[in-house]
Amino acid sequence: MKIIYFIICSLFLVSCSSSKKQVENIASEPDFMLAFGSCNRVDLPNLLWDDILKANPDVWVWGGDNIYADTDDMVALRAMYNEQKEQPGYNQLLKSTDIIGTWDDHDYGLNDGGVEFSAKDASQQEFLNFMNVPDDSPLRNRQGVYNSKIYEIDGHSINIILLDTRYFRTRLTVDTETDKRLKPNKYGEGTILGDVQWKWLENELRTTTAEFNIIVSSVQYLSKEHGFEAWGNFPHEVDRMAKVIADSKAEGVIVLSGDRHISEFSKTNLDGVDYPLIDFTSSGLTHAYRDFSGEPNQYRVGEVVFTESFGILEFHFNTRTVDFKIVGDNGIVLQRIEQVYE
């Protein structure tokens, strides 16, 4: 739509011998551009906002860990949010671009925290302040920051569904047998979303008429073998999500995630769904897992990116195509995949 990147063909990207249809998708301007990212510290250089501004997205989506506060002191939390708002590049984005998002543990206030965090209600209000949510919004009286927003574009629509994987999330199981931090709970034990949010999500997907439905989860949905936080720590919730997506018949469901300080694409086929489910992880904006030496992910497509980056999704409605890009400093496309949703 507003910026054209040079594309390097490789085995896991679109082949240089791609069909004419695919080549046209890459070369044409998108009808809608979503940019997103996570894991952003105010005490480190915010080096990517100029690149995000140059991309000129239609919406910026915060994927969580938007600041690193880790506190139940609301004065300190508010000060850090305000510092981020005053960061020159982000401040310019605020003035030019629609901004929505969710939180993760470090802006929630408790590392790996969930339902047990005593300051979660006060923290929610500070998050909503950061997101410039009006004082009279119904979101101010809802438990949890889950929400959705529909974008209408020339007779087409995209529904962005923002999940809260913190407010209701129950106990994790520490792994005392291996060098991993966590292991999956017993099947059926615990919840990520809680009953009320699950019912809300089921209704969102069942009633949507959007051509694309973007589910924003602060933690990874597909990748689950690394031993850190993920949907895989609640295997029954993974299965429930797959069933909800399939039963809903919602079109073009895509998952966006963060948290890991790496960026990668994961992809699988769900029973009853006639398109692959992609989980696009983008993390982090100001710091990355630069000592990354490998980890298993049976769903991975391509390679892991472990430098600072953000994500872009370019939507082409006429061909029902989405171009997924991991973008680094100076606007360099570090990796990309393309998916047609027929």
Rank of each mutant, 00 (worst) to 15 (best):
H287P: 00
T102Y: 01
I8E: 15
F228N: 07
V115S: 15
Q197E: 12
I215K: 01
F117M: 12
W62L: 12
I153H: 06
E308C: 14
K186A: 05
Y146G: 00
R336N: 15
F6N: 11
Q197T: 08
D104E: 05
E229V: 02
V23P: 00
I215Q: 01
V253G: 07
V216F: 01
V253P: 04
W49G: 06
Y221T: 02
V115Q: 14
D164A: 02
V305H: 02
V244P: 02
L53P: 01
L47G: 10
N233F: 00
L94R: 15
L182A: 00
T268N: 00
E189V: 14
L139K: 12
H226D: 10
F117Q: 11
D31C: 05
D279E: 05
Y341L: 10
G258L: 13
G328S: 05
N56H: 08
V333E: 08
E126A: 03
H261Q: 07
S223L: 04
T307N: 12
Q197G: 06
D291R: 11
R140M: 08
S28I: 00
I312R: 13
R142N: 03
I4P: 00
T170D: 11
S38Q: 03
N330H: 14
E83T: 14
T286A: 06
A69D: 04
N91M: 08
C9T: 13
L270Q: 03
G258I: 11
E308L: 01
E83W: 01
M241N: 00
A122Y: 01
Y289F: 14
E225K: 00
I67M: 08
V75G: 09
P296C: 02
G188D: 02
D291A: 12
M80G: 02
I99D: 08
S17W: 06
I161G: 00
N213T: 05
L222I: 02
S15V: 06
Y299S: 06
F32K: 10
P276Y: 03
E295Q: 15
I3V: 13
R78N: 13
A250Q: 03
L270D: 11
D279R: 03
V75T: 15
N147P: 00
D70C: 09
I52W: 06
H226T: 08
N269L: 06
T307G: 10
D72E: 15
V333D: 03
L313M: 15
P276K: 03
N56F: 01
F324A: 06
R166L: 12
I8V: 14
N185H: 05
R140V: 09
W200P: 04
S283I: 11
G37T: 10
R290N: 15
G258A: 10
T173L: 09
N40Y: 07
Q22G: 04
F280K: 13
T102E: 04
G113I: 09
K180N: 13
G272R: 05
D58T: 04
F212A: 15
K2N: 15
Q298S: 09
Y275V: 13
L47D: 12
R171Q: 13
N132L: 11
L313K: 12
S248A: 11
